[in-house]
């Protein structure tokens, strides 16, 4: 079932997962996951809710601990060693469904905090970088407001800028548009498309099939904790192989 589709964009491997298993208590959430993401590749992970796609992406930066198998991110293996974990986390940006901005800090402070404390960058330089990326996501004028004063779409774009400030080599997106109004979904997706065009390695859990078609190199379909099918977007949508995929696609593309 796990026949690997080779879509090598670059020979360098950004994320390598081999025989990875995870349990929540006695519940087997992820079963024998094998996945290689090459540098510069854009992967979309989709599947019904409870299929383990969010858990998979959260394992990549150790927000969830895996119990067996191997995860190598950016050349560093994820073990229980806290130094490795912190190193990987500072190289991997993560976006959340509920943005998770820090409500007690201004937009600018949200963007400079990790630069100053993790990267030890001087404040003036950190602020310059922050303004650069806030301009890139088109909200430099909100820099001195607090997250609570921004719309959902703006907050998610701030979250993208906050991650980019750390100059990550890989970006993970955990349903970044699921909590947004349709109008705001577009502004966030546009920002993500721009990011993809810049050559960022991206792993995106989303239900936005339009985005998958337009941006992804590869679409992965998961169900019951395992990878059921993966393929180029064109093949995946037009000619799904497994029955489970066909059923899923007919349901989400049906209306």
């Amino acid at each position: 079932m796990n026949e690997r589709v080779k879509l090598t964009v670059s020979d360098e491997v950004a994320i390598g997962i081999q025989g990875m298993n995870k349990w929540f208590g006695s519940f087997h959430v992820l079963r024998d996951i094998d996945l290689t993401v090459n540098r510069g590749e854009r992967i979309v992970v989709c599947g019904p809710s409870g299929s383990g796609k969010s858990t998979l992406i959260r394992c990549v930066n150790a927000l969830e601990e895996h119990q067996s198998g191997q995860i190598i991110v950016d050349g560093t293996e994820l073990t229980s060693d806290i130094k490795n974990i912190d190193k990987i986390r500072s190289e991997v940006g993560m976006l959340f469904q509920h943005f998770n901005l820090f409500p007690h800090l201004t937009i600018l402070e949200n963007c400079t905090l990790a630069q100053i404390w993790v990267r030890k960058i001087p404040q003036a330089e950190a602020e310059e970088t922050a303004m650069h990326f806030l301009t890139k996501v088109k909200i430099p004028e909100q820099a001195n407001k607090y997250p609570g004063q921004l719309s959902g779409g703006q907050q998610q774009r701030v979250a993208i800028a906050r991650s980019l400030c750390m100059r990550p080599r890989i970006m993970l997106f955990d349903e970044p548009t699921s909590a947004l109004d349709p109008e705001m979904i577009k502004e966030v997706l546009d920002t993500m498309i721009e990011l993809a065009e810049d050559g960022m390695t991206m792993m995106v859990v989303t239900h936005e099939m339009g985005f998958a078609r337009q941006v992804a190199n590869r679409v992965i379909f998961m169900d019951e904790g395992q990878i059921v099918e993966q393929n180029e977007p064109k093949e995946f949508f037009n000619n799904p192989k497994s029955d489970r995929t066909k059923l899923f696609l007919s349901q989400i593309l049906g209306h």
Binding site: N61, L63, H98, L113, A114, W117, M166
Partner: peptide, 25 residues
């Protein structure tokens, strides 16, 4: 819990995330 996760995912260590993110709130 998103606040803990966001602090972690930016690479802040335990002491930093407590002092800068969690405890102020």
């Amino acid at each position: 819990s998103g606040q803990y996760e966001a602090a972690n995912s930016l690479g802040l260590d335990y002491a930093q995330s407590m002092r800068l993110i969690i405890l102020p709130q």
